[in-house]
């Protein structure tokens, strides 16, 4: 069967799991990355997604240059002001420019997406790879560890972890966001670890690995040259789909006030703050929600495109 959609968004981890297992089975010997790129470029939605992501990333990086005002600047007397030439997206409850805050908010949303996936990748590679290659006992131990982590309710466990880390020095980094990113990563690696393990286990019995072994290649060489590259494509797809899921998780936590510290801007938190005035004006909620939706869909489209491009069976 082929999967046409894979958001993993409602609950990072739980939903995507069978699909990821499916993806694990989909791995195969492909080395023609150029081929995949060609297929990706053919997918119009994926290209749009990639372009939008690039634009958002550029906005995030060059926020100080393109933002009309500093995100923390207050305009006294212009509280929840409507749309105007000087404030194209209006202002919020504190009298800050919404456009500036949407631009700066991209830093957090993209940051959480990328950073969380990095944490997830590192842990999943160690655990999944270790389980697949470390022998019977390491496999049993590491897989039981993933069982335990899997059993924790994700979002609620993130809150608990965040509260624990809030008391440490880490809380000072990135205006409180670091601990949230870290906590989301710390509970989100289970499915990827299982995916990597499954992928590597199946690769071990493939003809070309057996052939490489027969030719006397070292274990390290087999892992680095053959197994890792062939594990890469489902991992890339999983990570791409993981980004919007992490962004939603962070936005949800931020919505209930966990993580972000004022005057930093964050889309989830902007929506929460906007809710304080939503009956007076919808704009403080509208723009960050729109930004969130665009980012989310962009990664979705790119993920769809990547999966189709990297999985030859769907051609």
């Amino acid at each position: 069967m082929a999967q046409d959609g894979l958001t993993g968004a409602t609950t990072p981890g739980t939903i995507a799991q069978p699909v990821l297992q499916e993806l694990a089975r989909a791995g195969g010997g492909r080395s023609l990355w150029g081929d995949a790129l060609h297929r990706l470029v053919q997918n119009r939605l994926a290209v749009v997604g990639a372009i939008l992501i690039t634009l958002i990333a550029l906005a995030a990086v060059f926020a100080p240059l393109i933002s009309p005002y500093p995100y923390q600047r207050i305009f006294p007397g212009q509280i929840i002001a409507g749309l105007s030439a000087s404030h194209p997206f209006g202002t919020n409850l504190a009298g800050q420019d919404t456009l500036a805050r949407v631009i700066y908010g991209a830093r957090n949303s993209l940051g959480v997406g990328v950073f969380v996936q990095f944490v997830i990748l590192v842990i999943a590679l160690v655990v999944g790879g270790g389980a697949a290659l470390g022998g019977k006992y390491a496999d049993a131990l590491l897989m039981r560890l993933t069982d335990v982590v899997y059993a924790f309710p994700d979002l609620l466990f993130v809150i608990l972890l965040q509260q624990v880390l809030a008391g440490t020095r880490l809380a000072a980094y990135m205006g409180g966001l670091f601990v949230v990113f870290f906590a989301i990563g710390l509970v989100g690696w289970v499915n990827l670890a299982r995916l990597i393990r499954g992928q590597m286990l199946s690769l071990r019995t493939t003809d070309y690995v057996i052939a490489a072994e027969a030719l006397g290649a070292t274990r390290l060489r087999i892992v680095v040259r053959h197994m890792l590259p062939n594990t890469l494509s489902p991992v890339i797809v999983a990570l791409t789909f993981g980004v919007p899921s992490a962004i939603f998780t962070e936005a949800a936590l931020s919505f209930i006030g966990i993580g972000i510290q004022p005057p930093l801007a964050d889309w989830g938190n902007m929506i929460y703050d906007g809710y304080g005035a939503v009956l007076a004006t919808p704009w403080p909620i509208f723009f960050p929600a729109l930004a969130l939706a665009i980012t989310f869909l962009s990664f979705q489209f790119l993920g769809d495109g990547l999966r189709d491009a990297l999985d030859p069976r769907t051609r």
Partner: peptide, 16 residues
Amino acid sequence: VVNDPTTKALATTLQS
């Protein structure tokens, strides 16, 4: 401060 739109607006106003 507690996370509440109005209290945060107060905090940012005091900050400036």
